Amino acid sequence: MRGEPRSRPFVALLLAALTLTGCAAAPSDPVPSPTTIDLDGWTAESGNGLTLLSGAAAREVVLSRVDAADAVAMSATFRGADGGELRSKTRRAGSDRAATVVAGARTVRIVMIGDRGYLREGDGAYRCVARGDAALDRWMPLSDADELLATLTADASGLGSPREDGTVDLLLGTEQTTGTLVVTSQGDALPQRLVRADAAGTFEATFSGWTDDSPIEVPSPLGDGC
Rank of each mutant, 00 (worst) to 15 (best):
S54A: 10
A57K: 09
D188R: 12
G223Q: 08
S28R: 12
D224P: 04
S95I: 01
M74H: 11
F78D: 05
G84R: 06
P5A: 14
G122W: 07
L136F: 13
P9T: 10
Y126R: 02
G117W: 03
R127N: 12
P34V: 12
L171E: 10
G223P: 04
S7A: 15
G160C: 04
G49N: 01
V102T: 15
S46Q: 10
E121Q: 11
R138I: 03
A200R: 07
L119V: 03
P27Y: 08
T153M: 01
Y118D: 07
M140W: 15
E121F: 09
D29S: 14
G158H: 04
A156L: 01
T177V: 00
F207S: 01
S46A: 11
P221E: 05
V108K: 02
E217C: 08
A44T: 11
P34I: 08
L190C: 10
I37K: 11
G166N: 03
E147Q: 15
G223S: 04
G160N: 02
R120W: 06
S75V: 14
W42T: 13
L15A: 12
Q192G: 15
G173R: 01
D38I: 08
T202A: 11
P9H: 05
V111H: 08
F203V: 13
Q192H: 15
A57E: 14
S75N: 13
G83E: 05
D96L: 01
W42S: 11
A57D: 15
T167M: 05
R196A: 02
G41F: 09
D213T: 09
S75C: 04
M112S: 12
G173E: 00
L194W: 04
A71E: 05
L152W: 08
D133N: 14
A44W: 06
R91H: 15
L86M: 15
A81G: 14
I110Y: 10
G187C: 00
R106D: 10
A25N: 00
D198F: 00
T35S: 13
E204M: 04
P34G: 00
D188C: 05
T177F: 05
E45L: 15
V66L: 11
R97Y: 13
L15S: 13
D144A: 12
L53D: 03
R87Q: 14
A44S: 04
R8G: 06
V218M: 00
E4L: 12
A103W: 08
F203P: 10
V101T: 10
V182I: 12
Q186A: 12
C128K: 07
L152C: 11
A81K: 02
D146S: 06
D212F: 09
V72D: 09
L15P: 03
S214R: 14
M112Q: 13
P219Q: 07
E60L: 03
R87M: 13
F203S: 04
P162K: 09
D29Y: 13
A58W: 10
R120M: 09
Y118N: 02
A81C: 12
M1D: 07
T153Q: 08
D165V: 06
A154V: 13
